[in-house]
Amino acid sequence: MRKKLRVAAYAICVRDDQLLLARWIDDDGRPEWTLPGGGMEHGEDPYDTVHREVAEETGYTIEITGLLGVRSRRHVSRRRFGRTVDHHGVGLVYEARVTGGELRPEIGGSTDMAAWHDLTTIPDLNRVGLVDAGLKLWRERPVTGRATQVQE
């Protein structure tokens, strides 16, 4: 079984009771909303990763105002040719505020749109579990950096 570790950094940006989200297309071609952010490049600090990813996916520059916590998720799946992959994703979730730039879609990347969404409408969106996990960290602000379990 192949083991794969992915470390990523994401931003929770809430402004005027709205959350900034980016939209990506899943493996089945369905659009899903997610937190702006993504995978670290080798040698990159996660603090720098979240700045880079938010700028790429939304057009905004941000200021990090805190580290909310860590989301660790593991799942085993079958890939092409019957190969099994044990995937472990570790995501650092930062709180941030927009300091500049203009909202725009990512060009040639993993997302195709970015938008602000009212916090009350988030449950109605087609979204990845990371959105709920990040919002839970933002609301609970656990001193351990680990929110209570979120169903996925």
Score class of each variant (00 low, 15 high):
residue 21 L to I: 09
residue 64 I to T: 11
residue 4 K to C: 13
residue 66 G to R: 05
residue 28 D to W: 02
residue 24 W to F: 12
residue 65 T to A: 15
residue 24 W to G: 04
residue 59 G to P: 06
residue 14 V to E: 04
residue 44 E to K: 00
residue 117 H to I: 03
residue 13 C to Q: 11
residue 26 D to V: 04
residue 103 L to W: 05
residue 152 E to K: 03
residue 15 R to L: 06
residue 143 V to D: 14
residue 73 R to D: 14
residue 48 D to W: 04
residue 52 R to E: 10
residue 109 G to H: 00
residue 127 R to G: 01
residue 147 A to Y: 10
residue 129 G to W: 07
residue 24 W to C: 08
residue 1 M to V: 10
residue 36 P to K: 01
residue 151 Q to N: 10
residue 53 E to D: 08
residue 84 T to E: 11
residue 10 Y to G: 09
residue 67 L to E: 11
residue 8 A to L: 13
residue 143 V to E: 15
residue 41 E to K: 03
residue 77 S to W: 14
residue 74 R to F: 13
residue 40 M to V: 09
residue 138 W to Q: 06
residue 74 R to H: 14
residue 149 Q to N: 10
residue 32 E to M: 13
residue 63 E to W: 12
residue 149 Q to T: 11
residue 68 L to Y: 02
residue 115 A to K: 00
residue 80 R to H: 08
residue 66 G to F: 09
residue 18 Q to L: 04
residue 82 G to Y: 05
residue 135 L to N: 02
residue 23 R to Q: 09
residue 150 V to P: 03
residue 43 G to N: 12
residue 25 I to K: 00
residue 1 M to F: 09
residue 23 R to I: 02
residue 91 G to V: 09
residue 58 T to E: 12
residue 131 V to N: 02
residue 79 R to E: 15
residue 46 P to E: 04
residue 36 P to H: 03
residue 63 E to T: 14
residue 10 Y to S: 12
residue 152 E to V: 11
residue 113 M to W: 07
residue 1 M to W: 09
residue 138 W to R: 02
residue 91 G to L: 13
residue 132 D to R: 05
residue 87 H to T: 13
residue 141 R to V: 12
residue 11 A to R: 00
residue 29 G to V: 12
residue 114 A to I: 05
residue 79 R to W: 12
residue 131 V to H: 02
